[in-house]
Computed example of a mutant assay.
Amino acid sequence: MDNSPASWAPKPAVIGLGWLLTVFAAAATVFTALSGDPAGPILFGIATVGLLAFTALGTVVRPKLSADTHGVRVRTLTGDHRLDWSQVRVRLVRTRRFGREVATLEIECENVPPHLLVLGWIELGTDPEDVVDVLSSLRPGAA
């Protein structure tokens, strides 16, 4: 069993696509403003701000999740949260969305904010089921 540290973050291609879409949305905002369309700049401006926020978050908060035999570390906008294995409960949750099953990783923290983190494949850069397998192998006392 390999107990070396592991980490997960959004794939660079996803982040790159986010920045590209942000630039296109910003250009569309300017173009619609210059064309005299009253609603276009508002709608594209909202899209630009949303894309900018999510892409900047994915760029700055890297890696999103890392783990070793001592515990897990989660990076959020409020900083790094280092949690011992005794403080967390990790589970895989499957839900049906749009006719297909979607898996998410839930990390429940005792007495430490954030109390519940829900991470999908975009935040982790891989299938949450694979992450749960690695986390289970890193947790002390795992069979």
Results as ranks from 00 to 15, higher is better:
19 W>A: 08
15 I>Q: 02
28 A>Y: 06
138 L>A: 01
33 A>Q: 07
110 E>G: 08
54 F>M: 10
123 E>W: 05
46 I>W: 11
84 D>L: 15
66 S>L: 04
13 A>L: 11
65 L>E: 02
43 L>Q: 11
141 G>L: 03
125 G>D: 02
11 K>A: 02
55 T>R: 02
39 A>M: 13
35 S>F: 06
105 L>W: 04
114 P>K: 01
128 P>Y: 04
30 V>A: 14
134 V>P: 01
64 K>W: 10
104 T>C: 12
106 E>S: 12
70 H>T: 15
24 F>Y: 10
20 L>P: 01
26 A>M: 05
113 P>E: 11
63 P>T: 08
22 T>G: 02
93 V>W: 01
96 R>M: 10
100 R>L: 10
115 H>C: 00
60 V>G: 10
51 L>Y: 05
139 R>H: 10
99 G>F: 12
10 P>S: 10
41 P>R: 03
143 A>G: 09
29 T>D: 08
52 L>C: 14
29 T>C: 15
113 P>M: 05
10 P>Y: 07
21 L>A: 06
4 S>N: 08
11 K>S: 14
85 W>V: 01
16 G>W: 13
10 P>E: 03
68 D>G: 09
56 A>P: 01
44 F>R: 00
111 N>G: 06
93 V>T: 12
134 V>W: 04
76 T>Y: 09
51 L>P: 00
16 G>Q: 08
39 A>H: 09
47 A>D: 05
86 S>Q: 12
70 H>M: 11
85 W>K: 00
134 V>A: 09
101 E>A: 05
36 G>R: 09
48 T>V: 08
57 L>S: 14
91 R>E: 15
67 A>I: 05
103 A>L: 10
127 D>Q: 01
17 L>P: 02
57 L>A: 13
42 I>F: 13
94 R>S: 06
77 L>N: 14
9 A>I: 05
55 T>A: 03
98 F>Y: 14
93 V>H: 03
94 R>W: 06
97 R>S: 13
5 P>C: 02
21 L>M: 14
22 T>A: 10
119 L>M: 15
138 L>N: 00
21 L>H: 09
102 V>P: 05
113 P>S: 10
96 R>T: 06
19 W>G: 04
116 L>N: 10
10 P>Q: 00
31 F>M: 04
120 G>I: 00
54 F>V: 08
79 G>M: 13
143 A>L: 12
48 T>N: 00
141 G>I: 09
43 L>S: 11
90 V>A: 03
117 L>H: 01
127 D>G: 07
117 L>T: 03
32 T>A: 06
142 A>H: 14
2 D>C: 12
124 L>T: 01
